[in-house]
Design a protein around this nucleic acid. Structure first.
Length: 473
DNA sequence: AGCTTATTGTG
DNA sequence: ACAATAAGC
């Protein structure tokens, strides 16, 4: 007798129909499918912007499912309790989901899987959030990789499974279990008035993500090798926002990149390498789950980083009035759009950790509050890489000079003018939007004089190097 | 996926 | 005078 009980598909950071192994398998099974999204502690713990963006994504995905004759059931509470309750309510015999690799999710999913199996439920997790499962990439010594280049060499010729099609149909259950109303969750509450400013920059959902990918493949990927660094130009794929919530899968991106490479597009390999950086970050997060919490190299614990968030340098950095135009431009771009050009991310991070000598966790947490493309793996690796405390890190002496970086990557200062209003007679809308997004308590106005640097480019470099001279490691 | 300074090369 | 290169931070 074939199994006929419903399958619960537990939707998490995988808000798509295509290339979704759990949904695909459920669609193939010929059983009723009950997609459910759970607001548990991993959702409640998110920063303001990613939580708001998640709410938009969940709402959009619910509409997508509804258009297919299905639904997205919303429930709040500890995932294990919610799923056990739903199994009882619906008579489901299976709970399937796509794996996550951050420590909080791993701990939760492990407990959920064993609890469901104890009840005789078919609990299964599927691959899909990364290209290469973290435990399948090993050095010759059987260790995980700690340096990017050999990781790239180990994986870049591997086969990545062709993306799965969207399920033809998702049979509805005889009756739908009750669902919370998304609005009642108030996932956007912490964004306050910033949401209105950021919203026009959001490209929501699977279709928009595919359009972004298609546009990039027929356009900017050819010039990506240099274009990825030109901060004033829109030379990147802009897919981070969609990848973070699984509105597109890395395998879909990978195959598109391979096709571009076969078509002779020069920038394709550079872009494929970026996708592998994302995988490398998850590889490291899986094997060393303390990556977001503490120095990956413990010898850095003794480094005299400032950890006091009330210090004036930290306040100036968060409010994007450090007096260094490139730094402030990047931070304002993030506040207005919920994203920041990767080149600017490196520069603002280097300035915070080296010139201002502040702990990378201050920056990591600020990014988590502000980024709609927040990704726990990429951000943890990126901050520790910049600070010097991480795997394959920039050595302590590799200090970005925010003045020469601007000259090199924003030669006409277009990016700086786009985001900094002070000192301009007719500031562009983008620069003025920043003042609509920020809290009034910051007491900033586009008519202010642009501030003097809190720490100058040269003196900051000297101070950082001097601090390292006094290290005891 | 760096910066700075010293040194050597070029006109 | 300036560009390319090397070495150390």
């Amino acid at each position: 007798m074939p199994e006929t009980s419903p399958v619960i598909v537990w939707i998490r950071r995988d808000l798509r129909l295509s290339d979704h192994a759990a949904l695909h398998a459920a669609g193939q099974a010929g059983r009723p499918v009950i997609p459910v999204f759970i607001r548990d502690h991993t959702v409640d713990d998110l920063g303001a912007a990613p939580k708001w963006r998640l709410g938009l994504g969940v709402g959009h995905f619910a509409e997508t499912l509804a258009a297919k004759g299905s639904r997205l059931v919303l429930r709040a509470g500890p995932a294990r309790e919610v799923l056990e309750q739903l199994v009882d309510e619906t008579g489901a015999g299976a709970v399937w989901w796509q794996r996550a690799y951050d420590p909080a999710s791993v701990e939760r999913d492990t407990a959920v899987k064993s609890a469901l199996k104890d009840r005789g439920i078919d609990a299964q997790s599927f691959a899909g959030h990364v290209l290469f499962e973290p435990w399948t990439v090993e050095t010759k010594q059987g260790e995980f990789y700690k340096v990017y280049s050999p990781f790239w060499r180990a994986v870049h010729t591997r086969d990545v499974a062709e993306p799965l099609p969207a399920p033809d149909r998702l049979p509805a259950p005889e009756s739908w279990p009750e669902s919370d109303a998304l609005d009642d969750w108030r996932l956007g509450e912490a964004m306050r008035r910033g949401a209105a400013v950021v919203r026009p920059w959001v490209q929501l959902g699977e279709e928009a993500a595919q359009a972004r990918l298609g546009g990039f493949m027929s356009g900017k990927i050819g010039a990506y090798k240099d274009g990825c660094n030109a901060v004033a130009e829109d030379g990147t794929s802009n897919l981070s926002e969609n990848l973070a919530l699984g509105e597109i899968s890395p395998a879909q991106c990978w195959h598109a990149g391979l096709r571009a490479q076969e078509a002779g597009k020069e920038g394709a390999e550079t872009w494929l390498k970026e996708l592998v950086w994302r995988d490398f970050a998850y590889h490291l997060l899986w094997h060393t789950p303390h990556l977001p919490e503490s120095n990956w190299r413990p010898e850095w614990d003794g480094f005299p980083w400032n950890e006091d968030e009330r210090r004036k340098e930290v306040i100036a950095w968060k409010r994007a009035r450090t007096g260094i135009p490139f730094v402030d431009a990047g931070l304002r771009e993030m506040y207005v759009t919920g994203r920041m050009h990767n080149r600017a991310r490196m520069v603002v991070a280097s300035y915070l950790t080296k010139h201002l000598m502040c702990h990378w966790k201050i920056g990591l947490e600020w990014f988590e509050d502000c980024l709609i493309d927040w990704d726990p793996a990429s951000n943890s690796l990126g901050w520790q890489w910049t600070a010097g405390s991480g795997p394959d890190a920039a050595p302590y002496f590799r200090v970005f000079n925010p003045i020469t970086q601007r000259e090199r990557f924003d030669p006409d200062a277009d990016y700086v003018r786009r985001w900094i209003a002070e000192g301009q007679r007719n500031p562009p809308e983008t620069a003025l939007a920043y003042f609509d997004a920020i809290p009034e308590s910051w007491a900033m106005s586009p008519e202010d004089d642009y501030p003097e640097p809190v720490v100058g480019a040269d003196e900051g470099r000297k101070a950082a190097l001097a601090a390292y001279e006094n290290r005891d490691f």
